[in-house]
Nucleic acid binder design. Structure first.
Lengths: 153, 153
DNA sequence: CTAAGTGCAAATGATTTGCAGGTAT
DNA sequence: ATACCTGCAAATCATTTGCACTTAG
């Protein structure tokens, strides 16, 4: 567990405690995974990885905990049509993504000029812009060559 | 029906005929609506507007026809998590949107610099980028004032 | 102790699909 | 004629929710 992950997990558990809600083992485990997963895991990725430690853990609990983390401002959901959402507990704010159409990998690109673009859009449309969604889709370097699809979450 | 809409409808019906599939009244009606609707209608918007002319029209037919139009390259789907998709038959290619969180209105902003941004992303990540999704969310000029929500599709 | 959380299974909402009868070509 | 369509209802898939039991504080 990297220093950054440890810090994220500390922030999450602190918010959880501060909220007055209960710090159950399941909640802490889900949040830890969110804090340390670089690969934008799905609900089922999380449930699967928690099986060893919590044999009976239910999807419902994972869903509920993720929603809780979102409502605490500690997780970010990337929803896709036609497939389950993916979650990010490392950067819990809107940011652009690049999604590999072959293996499902999702990475976070650097991108300046987005704030500028948002201001331009707001000025031209008259909307009060509060958030955005920006995804690029394509083939990652690995999938451009081999036809594999080792799903790295 | 504007000149642009007429042209889009002509393109759609031509593609349909060329595909060898049948030009049924339902299909032509759905495609006409797609061709002329500026407001990015939902499946149910379309079904509702077709009720008068086709009293028994089913959601299934609307869904199937939209998928057909998409596969012909003549309609573009904007999918949202937690609510139904919206469709665009006027510009059947990826383009940015601005979505009003209060009334659901969706408009198409002008935006240069997107191609440039895509190239930048591709170069930095090594991905072969094939498409993108860009939405801004906020309050439209009307909803910034009144709390109404006249859903203009 | 007791409000809150968990697992399970049933409910939901959008979309898809199987099937039996209808229609464009 | 006949392969393709349609409407209907049942099936899917991701996610949410009701409920009876369990547990953190």
């Amino acid at each position: 567990m990297s220093a950054a992950a440890r810090e994220r997990f500390a922030a999450m558990s602190a918010k959880l405690k501060a909220s007055g809600l209960k710090s159950t083992p399941q909640r802490l485990a889900v949040m830890k995974l969110l804090a340390e997963s670089k690969g934008h895991p799905s609900v089922d990725d999380i449930r699967a990885r928690l099986q060893k430690k919590f044999p009976g853990i239910s999807q419902a609990t994972v869903y509920r905990t993720i929603q809780l983390a979102k409502s605490l401002g500690e997780a970010y959901e990337i929803a896709f049509a036609g497939s389950g959402s993916r979650y990010d507990g490392r950067k819990p704010h809107p940011h652009p993504h690049i999604v590999c159409l072959a293996c499902g990998r999702i990475i976070d690109p650097e991108l300046r000029s987005l704030g500028e673009m948002t201001r331009e859009i707001a000025a031209a449309s008259g909307f009060a812009i509060t958030t955005f969604r920006l995804d690029f889709f394509g083939l990652c370097p690995a999938c451009r060559n081999n036809k594999n699809g080792s799903r790295k979450t």
